[in-house]
Amino acid sequence: MTARTIHFTLNGAPVTADIKPHHNLVELLQTHFGLTGARESCGQGLCGCCTVLVDGRAVSGCLFLAVRIDGTEVVTIEGLDAGGKLNPMQEAFVETGAFQCGYCTPGFILMANQLLDAHPDPDDDQIRHYLSGNLCRCAAYPQIIDAVKLAAKKRKTIAA
């Protein structure tokens, strides 16, 4: 099937890729850019392991056709620690031990940042509700709640 060229911004840098209509966003990131932080697990948009931000909104990369990326701004987990400095959410996940195997962790971190953008000071219910579309088979859920609260504090300190 016809290949086509797409242009987009990836973690702040303009990039180009030749893709086919049936390729999805996870494949695009892995095969063209070697970025494996968004990874396909359930393949159905339910687990959140393939979360990517497209124009500032979280999507499931495994259900997102790569052609739709043309002209957008894409941010992946690899874009969060620019200059080698961890994002406050990443720091909070490390400090609270909010993961075990780590496979779902990038998705949780991207979603949790979206949550704090919308609700800077979330309570447990808001956290559970917003993140309920991400799954962790190691079930580090209690620790993830701790991490999000710690990150909220860190963001406030930075803003102050």
């Binding site: 990874r39 961890l86 031990g97």
Partner: peptide, 23 residues
Amino acid sequence: RSVPRLEGRDKVTGRAEYTHTMR
């Protein structure tokens, strides 16, 4: 002592390597 996981940084930055995404 509750030492934070040694591999924490690799996991939160999405750079930890797994066989399923290796090429």
